[in-house]
Simulated assay, not measured.
Amino acid sequence: MMRKIIFTLPLALMLAAPAAYSGTAEVKISEKDQARFDNLVEGRTAGEPVSCISRADQERLTVIGDKYLVYQRSSNPKTIYVNEPYGGCRNAEHYTLVTRKSTSRLCRGEIARVKDLQSDIVINSCSFSDFVPYTKMSD
């Protein structure tokens, strides 16, 4: 009897997990943060999503609420890349987003940790979705 319970519990958790972490859950964002995002992409055109971006080319990360990670490029400041992590990235705006440096690129599915560097405690983690380029056509 005990074996069935031990086996059944992990199976039940695995079956429930796709609904909870499918990336389809809506991430709530304040009107103020949505306005910040809209202002940042104003005058830019969204391009086809890409699965990876170069890590070396990213000059600055702007975190807007729990919903948007915006990477600004140094080699082409007219283009920014927007990522909406699956299920959001809670507290990334207030702490530091840490990624592994095992490759030269940031890619969809990669896990980033939200870390309090003062206490060296991981607060949260999030998983990148596709990166959407937004390009400014004129200055």
Results as ranks from 00 to 15, higher is better:
F128D: 06
V50F: 04
E93L: 08
R60Y: 07
S75V: 09
E84K: 11
N83Y: 01
V50Q: 14
I121N: 14
C126K: 01
M2C: 02
S102R: 08
M14L: 15
Y71E: 10
L97A: 08
Y21E: 02
S102H: 13
R60E: 14
K136N: 03
I6Q: 10
G88I: 04
L9M: 11
E84I: 00
P85T: 03
C89D: 05
M2W: 10
V132R: 08
K32Q: 12
V122N: 08
L9H: 04
R55S: 12
G88V: 05
R108L: 09
D116H: 10
L97Y: 04
D130W: 08
Y81P: 05
F37R: 08
K4D: 11
C89H: 07
Y134S: 08
C107I: 10
V82P: 00
E42I: 02
C126Y: 06
E48Y: 05
G43A: 00
A19F: 15
T99F: 03
P49A: 06
T8P: 07
T96I: 07
G43T: 04
T8V: 10
Y21G: 01
T103I: 01
H94M: 13
V50L: 03
T8W: 10
K32G: 04
E84N: 10
F128I: 07
I111P: 02
Q72A: 12
A46K: 07
F131H: 07
R108Q: 14
I123C: 11
D66F: 06
I29R: 01
G87A: 01
V132A: 02
S102M: 10
A56Q: 14
R90K: 13
V63H: 03
S127C: 03
S74G: 08
Y86S: 13
G23H: 01
M1C: 04
Y21D: 03
T45S: 14
Y134P: 07
T103E: 12
V63L: 03
N76F: 07
E31I: 05
L15Y: 12
Y81K: 05
M2D: 04
D116Q: 04
N83G: 05
K4W: 13
A56H: 11
P77D: 13
V114H: 05
I5F: 12
